[in-house]
Amino acid sequence: MSDRQDDVGATRESPERAKLKSASERPGFLPFHTNAFDRVFIGVVILIGIHLLWLRFMEPALPIEVATVISLVVGYVVVRRG
């Protein structure tokens, strides 16, 4: 963890290095490193979660297919950009 503190300090001192470092990382929006399998997994988790919440709270208003569409869109975004 002392390494991490050094790293934070170093980043503050040299923006070039920070840039280099972030360029070597995937530019995804998720707060941790992921591979393709992880992102598909997250997509499935979100899909199930949205469906369950939908059944509980939204179903009288809108049919479940809407949830499917929403979660497929979210899943696509996660898999491509995460």
């Binding site: 991490r4 790293d7 941790f32 997994f41």
Partner: peptide
């Protein structure tokens, strides 16, 4: 659904442990 909840929790904790968070050496 119980398996689902368990797996999600397990996976989140696994991510936390394996230290794959960005910006970490």
């Amino acid at each position: 659904i119980t398996l689902y909840l368990t797996i999600v929790l397990c996976w989140l904790l696994f991510i936390a442990i394996s230290g794959r968070r960005k910006g970490e050496v």
